[in-house]
Simulated scan of single mutants.
Amino acid sequence: MGSADLIGQKVSFPLGGSEAEPGIIVMRIDDTVGKDVDRKHDGALVLFNASPKESTQKLEELVGHDYSLAKSLAKGSDDRVKSTSFDSATGELTIPARTAAVLVEPQGSAK
């Protein structure tokens, strides 16, 4: 991204804070804010579930967004990672146990 200011504008942790579920980290990169730094994507979700249980989280602010598993992960051999999902209609994000994954949103699809 090139600068701390741009990172500050684009990066957030929507499930962070004192109410966060232990072992779950969701980092959102929103490329619709500020200077466009990726002509192929409007954003990404970087997901970590360090817990031994699958986690489903609701991110109401992402209803209507079109996130899907990054191509390299979707075409990979790890079936657990492939079961990571995002429901655009409800904003529900499902992260399998002990998984790290990246979801991307194509350019022009952000609401």
Rank of each mutant, 00 (worst) to 15 (best):
D5K: 13
L6D: 06
I7W: 10
Q9S: 03
Q9P: 04
K10Q: 15
K10P: 07
K10Y: 08
V11T: 04
V11N: 06
F13V: 09
P14M: 04
G16W: 10
G16P: 12
G16C: 12
G17K: 09
S18Q: 13
E19D: 12
A20S: 07
A20I: 08
E21C: 11
E21W: 10
G23N: 13
G23Y: 10
I24V: 15
I24F: 12
I25V: 15
I25W: 12
I25K: 15
V26D: 11
M27K: 15
M27Y: 13
R28F: 05
I29H: 14
I29W: 12
D30Y: 11
D30F: 10
D30M: 11
D31W: 07
V33C: 01
V33E: 00
V33W: 02
G34L: 01
G34C: 04
D36V: 09
D36F: 06
D36T: 10
D36S: 09
D36I: 08
D38N: 13
D38F: 07
R39W: 12
K40Q: 14
K40T: 13
D42K: 07
A44S: 11
A44K: 06
A44N: 05
L45P: 08
L45H: 07
L45D: 10
V46W: 14
V46P: 13
V46G: 14
V46T: 14
L47Y: 13
F48S: 15
N49W: 11
N49P: 11
N49C: 13
S51R: 00
S51I: 02
P52D: 11
T56W: 10
T56I: 11
T56D: 08
T56C: 12
Q57W: 10
Q57G: 07
K58Q: 15
L59D: 04
L59G: 04
L59P: 05
E60F: 01
E60N: 05
E61N: 15
L62G: 02
L62F: 02
V63R: 02
V63G: 02
V63W: 02
G64A: 04
H65P: 00
Y67P: 04
Y67V: 01
S68F: 03
S68M: 06
S68Q: 09
S68H: 08
S68P: 07
L69G: 07
L69S: 09
L69E: 08
A70I: 02
A70V: 03
K71V: 11
S72V: 05
S72M: 04
L73A: 07
L73P: 05
A74L: 06
G76I: 05
S77M: 02
D78M: 05
D78F: 09
D79M: 13
D79E: 14
R80I: 10
V81P: 13
V81N: 09
K82R: 13
K82F: 10
S83F: 10
S83G: 13
T84R: 08
S85A: 11
S85C: 08
S85L: 09
F86Q: 13
F86M: 15
D87G: 05
S88K: 09
A89K: 06
A89T: 03
A89Y: 05
T90G: 00
T90C: 03
G91Q: 05
E92V: 03
E92K: 03
L93D: 00
P96E: 01
P96M: 04
A97Y: 00
T99H: 00
T99F: 02
T99L: 03
A101G: 02
V102E: 00
L103R: 04
L103I: 02
L103T: 01
V104W: 03
